[in-house]
Amino acid sequence: MNIFRFAGDMTHLISILVLLLKIYATKSCSGISLKTQELYALVFLTRYLDLFTDFISVYNTIMKLVFIASSLAVVCCMRMHRVVRRSYDKDLDTFRHYFLILASFVLALLVNEKFTFQEIFWAFSIYLEALAILPQLVLLQRSGNVDNLTGQYVFFLGAYRAFYILNWIYRYFTEQHFSRWIACVSGLVQTVLYADFFYYYFISWKNNAKMQLPA
């Protein structure tokens, strides 16, 4: 474990706590893409298949359980909570996310570290995570205005992957056989997807104005 990876995991956890705070405090999920949340739940469920077969550390197991439970909790809350689901922007959240699932799965069948069930689903989860934010970014683009908590949620989510890139660079130079090129390339693509959002987030923060995304 290194400081970059720990910082990445903590910003990832913060992003989920900010999301849960927004939904429970405001009893609203407006501005949040249910499709992105469903994709994240799928990412964690397919990535942590080794949850009960390989014990890495107590920290690793607890964080996996937290990520799976919180992503499922958000999806259930957005789908079932009587009050929350009324505020879901159904007609704005129209990204065809099934294509993302299909594309990630086909790519995972072609490009993986080992052609085994667990490795293919691990690669699938890595590719899908890189693309999972797209419905959310499209929804924000369409709605134009980004409320503070939603903006912070996406910001921390992007920061988590950026920290992981520093982690991979650090591990590349400090560990002999470290080679996570699938995660590195995919993580890089994911962070680039946020670049546009980061730019407008920084502008709004600098001008102390409400964040606006160009339509």
Binding site: R5, D9, H12, R47, D50, D54, I56, S57, N60, M63, K64, F67, E113, K114, W122, Y164, N167, H177, F178, S179, R180, A183
Partner: peptide
């Protein structure tokens, strides 16, 4: 499982 196979990252 060789160590490199263990996915120790989240």
């Amino acid at each position: 499982m060789e160590p490199s196979d263990l996915k120790d990252e989240l």
